[in-house]
Simulated assay, not measured.
Amino acid sequence: MATHRRRTRFRPCIDLHAGVVKQIVGGSLSTDESKLQTNFVASQSPAYYAQLYRDNGLTGGHVIKLGPGNDAAARTALSAWPGGLHIGGGITEQNALEWLAAGAEKVIVTSYLFPSQKFSLERLQVLERLVGRERLVVDVSCRRRGEKWVVAMNKWQDLTDMEVDQASLKMLEEHCSEFLIHAADVEGLCQGIDEELVQRLGEWVTIPCTYAGGARDVSDLELVDRLSGGRVDLTFGSALDIFGGKTVRFEELVMYNKAMASV
């Protein structure tokens, strides 16, 4: 009997900043708000986007809280689609169960795993025991340094002691069910994905993995599928029409996912 390889699919996102859905140039996030470069500020609520994704059967999307003041907004999104979205941004052992109870399908963690910017396996194991491996996503969003990618935390401003490579991902896979990876250097620029990183991820990962950063055309889905062997999914942000973009129609992505589901 023929076996079919996994195919790349579109994963939706809701990025929250100061309680509002926004699309931001990732590299501009910092403690200095005057440096923030914003591509889009929504007039619609977080719940509107959650309902839109729900109506179109777009599973595995993520809600990311970029800094403080986003908890109430995040809760409205989760309540619009209980069990349909992942939540990230400030997740710790103190609040992980609370966010699952609020309706998140999974919790996404980064900064908590890197006290003083150094990886703590103990903290990862604590979270795994608390919520279960299947409900835990590790965000290994990164910045490129020479020929390497280094995990970045605190709004992608602080580099950690972890390189994104086969060894680190293999270790992390034992304790989580998915990866989320923002390529922070190209996030929000709509100038193309980090093709080398996507190809490497396709070689390294064995669990579901979602890449975000630089996607600008619906054909990027086929590009990621080819580069990663279908092992990496793709998020669109600033290029997408529902976020004020000009080059990617939401309807096209929904149709693509439906086509992939029937392959």
Rank of each mutant, 00 (worst) to 15 (best):
residue 155 K to I: 15
residue 102 A to K: 00
residue 241 D to C: 09
residue 108 I to V: 15
residue 84 G to C: 09
residue 93 E to M: 05
residue 36 L to N: 06
residue 71 D to I: 04
residue 231 R to E: 01
residue 80 A to R: 01
residue 118 K to E: 15
residue 19 G to S: 05
residue 174 E to C: 10
residue 181 I to L: 15
residue 136 L to H: 05
residue 92 T to I: 15
residue 210 T to C: 10
residue 67 G to S: 00
residue 240 L to F: 06
residue 145 R to Y: 06
residue 234 L to H: 04
residue 255 M to G: 11
residue 23 Q to C: 15
residue 128 E to Y: 01
residue 45 S to Q: 06
residue 101 A to L: 07
residue 158 D to G: 09
residue 61 G to Y: 06
residue 153 M to S: 14
residue 51 Q to F: 03
residue 234 L to Y: 02
residue 98 E to S: 10
residue 85 L to S: 03
residue 58 L to R: 00
residue 246 K to V: 09
residue 14 I to E: 01
residue 160 T to I: 07
residue 121 L to H: 03
residue 40 F to I: 10
residue 127 L to D: 06
residue 26 G to K: 02
residue 121 L to V: 11
residue 205 V to Y: 12
residue 204 W to Q: 09
residue 87 I to S: 04
residue 210 T to N: 02
residue 104 A to C: 12
residue 21 V to L: 04
residue 6 R to A: 14
residue 29 L to C: 13
residue 173 E to H: 11
residue 234 L to S: 03
residue 88 G to M: 02
residue 195 E to M: 09
residue 237 G to S: 14
residue 30 S to W: 07
residue 212 A to M: 02
residue 88 G to F: 01
residue 128 E to W: 00
residue 57 G to A: 13
residue 181 I to T: 13
residue 145 R to H: 07
residue 17 H to Q: 10
residue 65 K to F: 06
residue 187 E to V: 10
residue 91 I to S: 08
residue 186 V to A: 07
residue 169 L to N: 13
residue 244 G to Y: 09
residue 46 P to G: 11
residue 38 T to G: 02
residue 160 T to V: 08
residue 103 G to K: 00
residue 108 I to A: 05
residue 220 D to K: 02
residue 136 L to R: 02
residue 164 V to K: 02
residue 211 Y to M: 08
residue 221 L to N: 01
residue 164 V to R: 05
residue 116 S to F: 13
residue 206 T to D: 15
residue 116 S to P: 03
residue 75 R to F: 05
residue 147 E to W: 00
residue 72 A to C: 10
residue 260 M to N: 11
residue 6 R to I: 11
residue 130 L to G: 12
